[in-house]
């Protein structure tokens, strides 16, 4: 009975109405595009709650991005400082001017040294008296307590820590030199701090990316809950899971994109606010090195891409978990 029935029905199935392959292929893209904008339309119907969620995402994305931008600038800055390393040679007392000039000449002939500057002890005292405010106290001294100073500028090609250390060894061997001082320790400390900072940005970035996933996931979960009856109807009339999933995935994508834009806005506003006082501080150091500017194109693009990706991923996780629970009854 079953067999005779089967032949009867297969002819029925052939009559089943189906769009042609080319039509389905073309429609696939058209529908994607439609759902793409349909999901944006759904979001714009509730602008306030959309903006709230997107802002939460924006803040979560802005924090690690902002820290990264600042750290990025700081490490570039330390790179600049690194290239103008200087070594101070404090000379022994009682050396004649000619003696010092000989040493200066000799040092200038070193290939690893670009320039040597002589700070005469008398000139230094005079400058100190003029500028320090201890002028009268210093006049009470019988002798000039300051030594002659040679400032050595290593060449850019001999600038890495090993080469600098080798040079320091050379300089210490000169018997007229009392003390060799390289202010490299603060630089090493800065590097260490930057290193911790970079790790910190990684950790904060990871945690807040997780936060973004949770925010998007929860928002999508609520959207699914709100549209439960619609999902049931879709399943009843033969909607595949991927069809039902699609608007929610695009919703996640839009949230990610909006959140990234808000993050870019927040970071740039913060940079603008910081820039002026920073320029002022910088001018106090007679430097124009400290300037953050705005976010670069690369980091903005990276932020947009990761925002969209996180939005999509959060939506996918939520949809995968919650769509299964909704079946017609």
């Amino acid at each position: 009975m079953v067999k005779s029935n089967a032949t009867e029905v297969s002819s029925v199935q052939l009559r089943q109405l189906k769009p042609s392959f080319s039509s389905r292929f073309k429609e696939f893209f058209v529908r994607h595009l439609q759902v793409f904008f349909y999901s944006l339309g759904l979001l714009s119907r509730t602008p306030f709650s959309t903006l709230m969620t997107a802002s939460a995402l924006g803040i979560a994305l802005a924090l690690p991005t902002g820290l990264y931008v600042i750290l990025d600038h700081a490490s570039q800055l330390s790179g600049d400082i690194n290239s103008i390393n200087q070594i101070s040679l404090f000379m022994k007392k009682g050396l004649s001017e000619a003696n010092i000039q000989t040493i200066k000449k000799k040092l200038e002939s070193y290939p690893e040294i670009t320039q040597v500057k002589h700070v005469n002890r008398d000139a230094a005292l005079q400058e100190f008296q003029d500028n320090s405010g201890f002028g009268d106290a210093l006049k009470a001294l019988k002798d000039n307590p300051l030594p002659d100073l040679l400032i050595v500028y290593p060449s850019i090609t001999h600038n890495n820590p090993q080469q600098i250390n080798a040079l320091l060894g050379e300089l210490k061997k000169i018997k007229q030199v009392a003390l060799v001082q390289l202010d490299i320790q603060w630089l090493q400390r800065l590097y260490a701090i930057l290193h911790i900072g970079q790790r910190g940005v990684l950790i904060i970035g990871f945690l807040l990316a997780l936060g973004v996933l949770l925010i998007v996931g929860n928002t999508i979960r609520l959207a699914i809950e709100n549209r439960r009856s619609e999902i049931v109807v879709m399943k009843l009339i033969g909607g595949t899971n991927s069809f039902i999933r699609r608007p929610f995935l695009y919703t996640g994508f839009w949230y990610g994109l909006l959140g990234s834009f808000i993050a870019i806005l927040l970071v740039n506003i913060s940079l603008i606010i910081i820039n002026d006082p920073l320029a002022h501080l910088s001018s106090l150091y007679d430097s124009n090195l400290f300037s953050l500017g705005l976010m670069g194109v690369n980091i903005s693009a990276t932020l947009l891409l990761s925002g969209c990706f996180l939005g999509l991923l959060g939506a996918r996780l939520a949809v995968g978990k919650h769509l299964k629970d909704i079946e017609p009854k």
């Binding site: 769009p19 429609e27 058209v30 529908r31 049931v232 109807v233 879709m234 009339i237 033969g238 069809f243």
Partner: peptide
């Protein structure tokens, strides 16, 4: 009835066709 109340009559009836991938 199980209709979708945020869509027009046309959109409700069109749903099965859109799911199957018919042209507009």
């Amino acid at each position: 009835y199980q209709l979708l109340y945020d869509r027009t009559v046309f959109d409700n009836v069109a749903l099965p066709l859109i799911i199957s991938g018919f042209s507009s």
